[in-house]
Each structure stands twice: as structure tokens, then as C-alpha cells.
Amino acid sequence: MTAHAAVAAPSAPAARSTRARSTGLLLAVAALVATCVLSMTLGSRPVPLETVWQALVDFDPRSASQEVVRELRVPRTCLGLLVGAALGLSGTLLQGVTRNPLADPGIMGISAGAAAFVVFGVMVLGAQELVAYIWLGFLGAALATVLVYGVASLGREGATPVKLALVGAAVTAALSSITTAIVLIDVDALDELRAWQVGTLGGRFAPVVWQVLPFIAVGSVAALACGRALNGLALGEDVARALGLRVRLSRTVIFASVAVLAGAATAACGPIAFLGLAVPHIARMICGPDYRWILGYSLVLGPVVLLLADVAGRLVLPSGELQVGVVLGVLGAPTFIALVRYRNLAEL
């Protein structure tokens, strides 16, 4: 606890100098740019670098390869940027506000809520369009977050980390069982759910990017503004309150941001595991425990990890592609274990 206190106090000497952290962040941004270039140039269809460049600056609609870059890879990369940032940030927010190093959108009922609503939409409303799934998923994620936070807020102390974790687990279990009950009755719903539940950046085109952009933009700004509040909450509620932090209000804002970010990301791509869990830890390893920096790093590192996994998924198969959700699931676990072994995870 003393270490946190030292960092959170505004005038305390930082564990790492601001300059080192800024340099690190710049390097991370450079890595992000490089990743975007990879995402534009590598794919199941071999496209020469020159053609990629032409597609961006001097588009020739007659060229199939240029169309692939412009109509498929650019939206896909943009979606990767948005969703990666959203999941990285929401993971950081959740880990900070719940002080639980294993928190991610998956355990707060968000993925389960989105899935339940997608299935409900398919079965009861007959939804078939991806666009409809996005709204349904978003609604489900938002309602699940409100439910978790609302129930956890009952009682005198408000939404404490322990209550949040317990309610999150309970709501996840409840929603998952509803989803299972529906798909066991309705085979069509099961097929639709399976298609959505893999988690992928492929098969979503420009309209989806525009649909989630405003939500993720607003959510990201709100998230980045939460750094001080998270630093305060990391000290424990009493100290935070003594420092003048409005605990209840901060928590509400943070949860609202999480609902918007994770809800939009999950709705657009299906549940993507591991990212929201691992990115904050990677960020913390680089920049130390100050949440203002962790949020900045997560914003950049989330898309780096997601896009790298997506590019890998495009290349591993002889033809066709592997969904990014599968890549992250397969590569994520061992990588995460290696990280934990390499350096003890920060206790929150």
C-alpha cells in the first residue's frame, strides 16, 4: 500500500521519470504505426507495397488489389484501432476501479450481456443483420453493466471491489445460462451466436466502423480523464475520500465509460478475450503504477496487440483466415503466463 501512496501523491518523486515514460509512449506509438502498416500490407491476398501506397494516395477503382486495401484492409485496421483501444482502456478502468488484477470486460457480465441480447434478438425479434447485432450487443452490455453496478451499489458502503466482483460473476452466470437455455431450444439462434461469438475483425466493413466510432471516441476521452480518480481509488476508499475524491461519482463515471467502451467493442467484434486483461498489465510493467500513464499506454498498446494478432490470423492458414478471437485465445494464455513468470504482476 505504501508504494501506491508514494505514486499517487502528486508531489512524490515518480518511480520512473516523466521523460522515460514519454519516450516509452512515443516508442509505443511508433510500434502502433508500424502495426498499422503491417495490417495494411499483409493479408491472405498478396498485395505489393507499391499497390498499397497507390490505393491510399492515388486510388484506381479498376484494380482489385487496390480495392482490397481500401475497402477491406483500411476499415479492418480502423476497427482494430478502435476496438483495441476500447478494450485496453476498459480493462485498465475495471482493474483500477475494482482493484482486481484479473478484472476484464468478460468477468463484469459485459460479454455475457451482449451475447444474451444478440441471441434474444435472433430468436424473438428475428434479427439477421450485423448492424442489428451491434445495437443489441451494445444494449446488452450496457444493461449488464448497469445491473452489476446497481446491485453492487446496494448497501451502505456502495459498490466495493469485492461486491463488484461477486455480482459480476453472478450476473455473468445468470446471463450465460439464459443464453444457453435459448440456444438449446433454437438451433438457428445457436448458429448465429456461434458466428458472432468467435470474435473477429474480418467480415465487418466500413459501416460498422462508423457505427462504433462515436461511442469509442467519447468513451476514450472519458476514460483518459479518469487517471487521477483511479490513482485515488487505488489507495483505498477511506484515503481516497480523505484526499477529497468523490468516490461514488468517480465510480459511476468509470463504470459508464467501461459500459460504453466494452459494449461498443464487444458489439462490433464479438467477445474478444484476453486483451482487456493483459494490456493493462503490459502497460503497468512499462510505466509503473500511475494510472494516468497506464491509461495512455493502454490506449496505444491495445490496438498494437489486437492488430498483430489479427495479422497473424490472416497469415497462418494456407488459404482463408483465422479469427482474431481464436488467435488471441491460443497465443494469449501462454504469453500471459510467460509475463507473469517473468515479473510478478502488480498487486492492486
Binding site: G43, R45, R73, R314, S319, G320, E321
Partner: peptide, 10 residues
């Protein structure tokens, strides 16, 4: 099947 991606439809 041979599975292709939408990049390879042609």
C-alpha cells in the same frame, strides 16, 4: 472446400 477470404474472391 477450399476456404478463401474476401480478399481472394476473384
Amino acid at each position: 472446400w477450399q476456404t478463401l477470404s474476401f480478399e481472394q474472391v476473384d
